[in-house]
Amino acid sequence: MSEYVFGYLLAHIRGHDFYRQQQRQKYWQVEPLPRHTSLQSMRFLLLGTGSIAQHLAKTAQHFGMHVTGINSTGNTVDGFDVIETMPTLGEALTKADVVVNLLPSTPATRNVLNVDMLAMLKPDAILFNVGRGDALDLDALNSQLIVNPTQQAIIDVFTQEPLPNSHAIWERENAIITPHISAPSQPEQIVTLFSQNYHSYLAGKPLLNIIDFNKGY
Score class of each variant (00 low, 15 high):
1 M>H: 15
3 E>I: 03
3 E>D: 15
3 E>M: 04
6 F>H: 02
7 G>Y: 03
13 I>W: 01
22 Q>N: 12
23 Q>N: 07
25 Q>P: 01
26 K>F: 12
27 Y>C: 12
28 W>N: 05
29 Q>D: 08
29 Q>N: 11
29 Q>T: 12
32 P>N: 11
34 P>R: 05
36 H>G: 02
37 T>P: 00
40 Q>P: 00
41 S>I: 00
45 L>C: 04
46 L>V: 08
46 L>E: 07
48 G>L: 03
49 T>V: 06
51 S>A: 13
53 A>W: 03
54 Q>R: 12
55 H>Y: 10
56 L>V: 01
57 A>R: 00
58 K>H: 10
62 H>M: 12
70 I>G: 00
70 I>C: 01
71 N>G: 09
73 T>A: 11
79 G>N: 06
79 G>L: 05
81 D>V: 08
86 M>T: 15
92 A>Y: 00
93 L>A: 02
95 K>L: 13
96 A>K: 01
97 D>K: 03
104 P>L: 07
105 S>K: 14
105 S>I: 06
105 S>T: 12
108 A>S: 15
109 T>C: 07
121 L>E: 01
122 K>I: 08
127 L>P: 01
130 V>I: 15
135 A>N: 14
136 L>Q: 05
140 A>D: 01
143 S>V: 09
148 N>C: 12
149 P>Q: 14
150 T>F: 08
150 T>I: 03
151 Q>A: 05
154 I>K: 07
155 I>F: 05
160 Q>C: 09
161 E>R: 10
164 P>C: 08
169 I>R: 06
170 W>V: 12
171 E>Y: 08
173 E>V: 11
174 N>D: 11
174 N>K: 09
175 A>D: 10
176 I>M: 09
177 I>P: 02
178 T>Q: 09
180 H>S: 11
184 P>S: 03
184 P>V: 08
192 T>N: 13
194 F>A: 15
195 S>K: 14
195 S>G: 04
201 Y>V: 01
203 A>R: 11
205 K>V: 03
206 P>M: 08
206 P>W: 03
215 K>D: 14
216 G>Y: 11
